[in-house]
């Protein structure tokens, strides 16, 4: 039966395939024309790209310059004031600070926090967004608006009540798990995951709802008529069709979690067991902020993974599969 659903001759999907095929053809033709007609557009794009990159490029150069030069001359004078060094990176990567050693473990923590904290809210939000868009119920609109409005609740205001709950409920359970499986430390990622997940939900539901609600209704109705259950519709139609939206939102959620400091400060306990990279990098500039030159290198160390994720996931949303493609 489940196979049936996939093989259904759904009008929307058929349409979609054609569009995709045409898109390829159109692209080639378009490319030739583009270069003839939109020289100004290309120039404008180039200018924006350069302006947007210069600040980052400057800091990239600076991160290879010795402290003395960073403090006294601009990076654009690199030819008048030559001198390149890996010291900043050495400080960031290998500084064997006894209080916070081993950057590697922070790095693993960051990954271990960010991957589930991206998957959990996306799945839960996709489910909720599907319910809001395709299951009719009373007050659906009002509830959706309410959740939308919750985006504005400042995270700072939610930290203390949440921490109280975690302390009284979650921590005893964690202690017990630690007793049973000593491999798992008492201080686990669970708090951080939950916190990130629920703080992300309103925005992710809002974003996903916009895409999921634009899936042509014929597609979903056709599946239902064929007897697909709600979960089948969700897994076999809604999710695959929303892949571009999910991928782009996943990138941003991943980055927000990766770069988060506030949630980590409160819920990680600050030990090498849980604390992510940001927490370590924030301390690099030292007690009185005097070593800020190290942050130049720190910025790039923490940039690597988000860029990899971006490169890895961007292929999903450049392919013209966006939900709503067949609208109109």
């Amino acid at each position: 039966m489940s196979d049936n659903v996939v093989d259904l001759p759904i009008p929307g999907t058929a349409n979609r395939k054609d569009t995709a095929a045409e898109a390829v053809a159109g692209t080639k033709a378009g490319r030739v024309k583009r270069r003839l007609t939109s020289r100004w557009a290309t120039l404008a794009a180039l200018i924006i790209a350069v302006v947007w990159t210069i600040p980052t490029f400057g800091i990239l150069l600076s991160s290879f310059r010795p402290e003395e030069l960073i403090r006294t001359t601009g990076w654009w004078t690199i030819f008048q004031n030559p001198g390149l060094t890996l010291d900043n990176y050495r400080d960031v990567l290998f500084s064997s600070s006894a209080s916070s050693p081993q950057l590697g473990s922070y790095f693993v923590n960051s990954l271990a926090i960010a991957i589930p904290a991206t998957l959990f809210p996306l799945v839960l939000a996709a489910m909720a967004a599907y319910a809001f868009a395709w299951i009719k119920f009373k007050w659906a609109g009002a509830l959706f608006v309410f959740i939308f409005a919750l985006q504005i609740v400042p995270i700072q205001m939610a930290l203390i009540p949440l921490l109280q709950m975690f302390t009284s409920i979650l921590q005893p359970i964690q202690a017990q798990i630690h007793d049973v499986i000593p491999l798992i430390p008492e201080q686990t990622y669970v708090q951080v995951w939950i916190a990130h997940t629920l703080f992300a939900l309103p925005l992710v539901i809002f974003l996903l709802h916009n895409f999921i609600s634009e899936i042509p209704s014929e597609v979903i109705e056709a599946a239902k008529v064929d007897g697909a259950s709600a979960s089948q519709v969700f897994f076999r139609i809604v999710l695959p069709l929303s892949v571009p939206a999910i991928a782009s939102i996943a990138i941003f959620q991943f980055i927000w979690v990766w770069n988060d400091l506030l949630v980590a400060l409160v819920f990680s306990g600050g030990t090498a067991d849980v604390a992510p990279l940001t927490q370590r990098l924030a301390e690099l500039s030292g007690n009185r902020g005097q070593d800020w030159h190290r942050l130049t290198a720190g910025a790039f160390v923490s940039l690597v993974v988000p860029l990899i994720v971006f490169f890895g996931l961007q292929r999903y949303f450049v392919r013209g599969l966006l939900a709503g493609a067949t609208k109109g």
Partner: peptide, 12 residues
């Protein structure tokens, strides 16, 4: 990348 970093730093 993460593991490489781990390996580099090692145990103190």
């Amino acid at each position: 990348v993460g593991l490489a970093l781990t390996g580099c730093t090692g145990d103190i």
